[in-house]
Design a protein around this nucleic acid. Structure first.
Lengths: 224, 224
DNA sequence: TGGAGAATTATACGAATGTTTAGGCTCTCT
DNA sequence: AGAGAGCCTAAACATTCGTATAATTCTCCA
């Protein structure tokens, strides 16, 4: 009964540039879950509500921008523990904490852990909504850059090991001649690989390639 | 009497790689100022103590890594107001708040504003020292990158407007021929400028130059 | 065993790049 | 007016880059 709540099938297009977003709500109190769901749905946000952190961890995160609204005090895994757990799993969903009986160290720990906000009851609905908007926006941006990097990485993965090596050295600024010496190849071979690298990576200019190497964190290790 | 406290002239070299650091302490209670100063000096940190935010704002910030330890509650400008003020002035000194009578919204606001920590009395000295170490380390890193950027910027400023234009377009990946067309120059002229740019910027390879343009945030505006 | 397909090299040529030498032009400062 | 500085171009040359064609070697697989 605490599963994913019915998503409104009205298909209302969001007026924001952020597109659709999902708000995950975790609270052990059914009535709070319901009222939060109503609040978010009233502003055209999709909602998925859970009664405990474990329930939420079993499902998988959606491909859309999302955020997490949860009470610090939860049965089983506490809110802060969930935050730690998600960080360990490398899940960077922005979190908004709500609490009735929190204290300052708790809020500081949450904020240090990257929480978007830490609201104390009673709070105004608008406060929560503002935080949710900020959180989903942050998530959207994060997903954007992550997607860009992932796309580049998948291209990079299609390169043969030789091609990757050439790309590293070229991006480091070495001339074909030097790359050839480093890899103990003929210069012409380097040229061939270099051309293939440009094509496979979709780089139209050397500047493109260098920037790609930059965002991929590729730097040539100078072993000697 | 609340001016810069005597710096210990023992000239003890810090064992950390961070080198010397200064801790600014702001508190209206003299005895607290003194005890905090003692605490920090006991671990070889330089200290400058003030009785109010205004006093501190009048002086100027040092060139070394530093951080700010202050009570939220201060005469005149409050701690949070000082944080806002410093942000407006583009002074990014890391702040550690200490409070006896704080609340959660206050701590959340402080943390949202970039504070390193928000400690409640009573706190353990070690907690505060840990926070100070983290803060100065953060400041040191920030200064490092800022210095790098400033150095690059000063080099860039020595370029003539033509040379800057050429650098932008070259960094964008255009060929000499295209740069020449864009700027309505002869290709040979672009070559000359390009060479001068490389020399003036201290770039040994095109990759270097592109990375410099990257960190300077230079991107060619395509007006047409 | 034959062949498909890589990895690698060679030759050759056209295009792009970098530097040097030499000059002309305009503006400013003295 | 003259000197200097910055801006612009030209010719010539050497170097580097990019690509096409062809050949070699090797592995893997049917």
């Amino acid at each position: 009964m605490t599963g994913r709540s019915d998503l409104p099938h009205q298909d209302v297009k969001a007026e924001k540039p952020s597109g659709r977003a999902i708000v995950f709500v975790i609270d052990d109190d059914v009535s709070i879950r319901r009222s939060l769901s109503n609040l978010f749905q009233s502003v055209n946000l999709d909602v998925a509500a859970f009664g405990s952190a474990q329930e939420m961890l079993q499902g998988d995160l959606p491909e859309v921008a999302s955020c997490l609204v949860l009470d610090v005090r939860l049965p089983g895994l506490s809110g802060l523990e969930l935050q730690t757990e998600l960080a360990k799993l490398n899940l960077h969903i922005p979190i908004i904490f709500i609490t009735g009986h929190g204290d300052i160290p708790m809020s500081v720990k949450a904020m240090k852990g990257g929480a978007v906000d830490f609201l104390t009851k009673p709070y105004r609905d608008q406060e929560l909504l503002d935080a949710v908007v900020a959180a989903t926006e942050r998530d959207r941006k994060r997903r954007e850059v992550e997607k860009t990097v992932a796309n580049l990485q998948s291209l990079y993965d299609t390169l043969s090991s030789r091609e990757q090596a050439v790309m590293k050295l070229v991006a480091a600024g070495l001339m074909n001649k030097q790359v050839a010496a480093e890899l103990e190849l003929a210069e012409i071979t380097v040229k061939i690989y270099r051309g293939r690298v440009m094509k496979k990576m979709g780089a139209r200019t050397l500047a493109d390639l260098i920037r790609m190497a930059e965002t991929l964190g590729i730097c040539a290790n100078h072993p000697e």
